[in-house]
Simulated assay, not measured.
Amino acid sequence: MNKFTNFSKMIQISEPSWEVAETEGLAGLAVNYQNAPFLKHEDVSFINMCGCSYLGLDTHPAILQGAVEGVQKAGTLHLTTARTRLKISMLDELEGRLSDHYKGYTASYITCSAATAAFLPIYASGTFTQGVKPTMVFDKYAHFSMNHVKPICADETEVLTSPHNDLDYLEDVCRNNNKVAYIADGTYSVDGFAPIKDLIYLQDRYGLFLYLDDSHGFSVTGKKGEGIVLQEMGGINENTVVVASLAKAFGACGGMLLSGRKDMVERAVRYGNPWSQYLNSAGIGGCLASLDIHNSPELAIRQQRWRKNLQIIDDNFTVTNSGTESPIRVVLLKSPEAAVKSAKLLFDLGYYTSAVFFPIVPRDKAGLRIMPSANLSTEQMVDFCNKVKEVCKGQLLLSH
């Protein structure tokens, strides 16, 4: 009996929609940048309206040059030895600068999934809680990259799944257990945020440990790109770990694990998938260049342009996350079929959107996930909105 995962059921429910998306030419497209923001697939030129490079830094000349210089400085693309034995010297520079920038202790990973897989099982073992194995509570809507390690954590300790953002449930667990860890998204990939202020209250009262993935909130908010979680918390503390993408709004590649405790980072690196590859020299160079941008006036300029483009979406549609600083908007439609059909029509008109359906969203929802970038002009945003209205006419679940 499945306790924590059910891949068979997930595939059974979602496969028909994925098959339709692939048949319509909306999945697995091989592309190259033609002239940013335009991508090209075969002979088709289009704008990607569902990319995670929210600030448009993925094509920034300084980051691309940083990647080139990273390879040149290291003299290799990748040092094929586990970082616990040997590592490219620039890795220390990057992690030192990330630690200084975000005021904590940092380790970088090739993905946020690798960071999560490294850290959570070790935390479940009781290593960081004086041998007392914590009860681990995963939010129902925690990202797949975190849910994926539930069975491994459950081999070490008790694992529970809480209703989404249910503080009463979580507090009840805290009252009845000595050590509790809560695992959730800071900024969710479809809708909403973790209730940070309430979680801080539980942390102060019960010593609740927080593991929050703020990949979608990172870089887009905060004077230095701290993101939603660190902003609301006022910085990292010893009872919190934040994992965040260095590949989305940050504009480079990989992920970052940020802790208020040095020993947590050191043991995650040493014992959590130590065989895994770390960032190669191009990735390190790109991340260093992005940090330069995060310490310059350009960050605020791009954040403002991004907010303006979000507002254009909010002004035209009734969408999830309207009026918030989540970078994600979903135009809700009546069915998965309507979502795929609308996405296909938009692609033919020069805009790629993501048709979302289960398991990306709950089974009773479907729609177009839209993530506007700072590098799109007002004219492009208005044209896109007009085309969405045109192709989705009669299929919008909620009208503006």
Rank of each mutant, 00 (worst) to 15 (best):
C287K: 08
D348V: 04
G207V: 04
F7H: 05
N295I: 00
Y109P: 03
V220D: 04
V243W: 01
L208K: 05
T5S: 12
I301F: 01
L345Q: 14
S108G: 11
I110F: 08
M136W: 10
S108L: 05
A338Y: 10
S162G: 12
A339I: 08
P151G: 08
S322M: 11
S354P: 00
T127I: 08
F358D: 06
A124R: 03
Q72H: 08
M256D: 09
E19W: 01
M256C: 13
Q277W: 09
P362D: 10
A355C: 12
I312H: 06
V269Y: 02
L246Q: 09
I301L: 07
G394K: 11
Q72C: 00
V229K: 05
T135K: 14
T320R: 06
L86R: 14
I122T: 04
N48Y: 05
E171P: 03
K223G: 11
A244G: 07
L345D: 12
S89Y: 02
N147K: 15
I110L: 13
M49T: 06
Q277V: 05
V361Q: 01
M264K: 00
G394M: 13
K223Q: 12
Q12N: 07
Y123R: 03
A154G: 08
P274F: 06
S276Y: 02
G186D: 06
T81N: 11
K103E: 14
S281R: 12
R85N: 10
I110K: 10
K389E: 14
D191K: 15
D198W: 00
G192N: 07
G286E: 11
R175A: 08
D292G: 07
F46Q: 07
A62D: 15
K387R: 15
L398F: 14
D100C: 00
F138D: 03
R175Y: 07
K197V: 10
Q65P: 00
E15Y: 14
S245H: 04
N2F: 12
A289C: 07
M49L: 15
L376H: 14
V149D: 02
W275N: 06
T318L: 13
Y123A: 10
A194E: 04
S342P: 06
G192C: 07
V137A: 04
Y188L: 08
K341P: 00
K262Y: 10
I13Y: 08
A82Q: 15
G70Q: 02
V159P: 09
L210Q: 13
T84N: 05
K248S: 05
S377N: 01
K140M: 05
L291P: 13
C112E: 15
L55Q: 12
V132F: 03
K387G: 07
F7L: 12
K224I: 14
